[in-house]
């Protein structure tokens, strides 16, 4: 079975581009437009989701809060933050909180795929929290 990547981004066009960039790779994509939806998908497909790509600036629950919720419920799931706004302080905070990568849009396909592959490799095959 292919690896699953969960995209959490409120903009459908951004989700579409990520899907396009990951097409033809070993990864399949699940999409969530907001944090609640992402948490639902994580609950239902925890065993199959290897990497989460998360936006920062979103209405309602922001990316910062979403990362915190996901880290709490699924501490070993690798999270890549993908943002339009480069902010060094924010990047440091995210990395400290356990995020595996902080990528600034626009990112080219090769770089994104490489980052997702690297993150997936870090994901343990067995996560006691995900059972």
């Amino acid at each position: 079975m292919k690896h699953q990547v969960l995209i959490l981004d409120d903009e459908p066009d951004v989700r579409k581009v990520i899907r396009q960039q990951l097409s033809g790779t070993q990864f399949e994509v699940l999409e969530a437009a907001h944090a609640e939806q992402a948490m639902d998908l994580l609950r239902d497909y925890a065993l199959f989701i290897d990497v989460i790509i998360c936006d920062v600036r979103m209405p309602g629950i922001s990316g910062v809060e979403a990362v915190s919720y996901i880290r709490e419920a699924h501490p070993t799931k690798p999270i890549i933050v993908l943002t339009g706004h480069p902010d060094l302080d924010l990047a440091v905070d995210f990395m400290k909180s356990g995020v595996v990568d902080y990528i600034v849009k626009p990112v080219e396909k090769d770089k994104l795929v490489a980052a997702v592959e690297k993150a997936a490799a870090k994901h343990q095959t067995f996560d006691p929290h995900d059972v």
Binding site: D13, I18, Q20, G84
Partner: peptide, 17 residues
């Protein structure tokens, strides 16, 4: 950053496609 990098990303992704 948000309002320009997001559509730039979409342009890049679409151009790659």
């Amino acid at each position: 950053g948000h309002e320009i990098n997001n559509p730039l990303y979409m342009i890049l992704g679409t151009a790659e496609a």
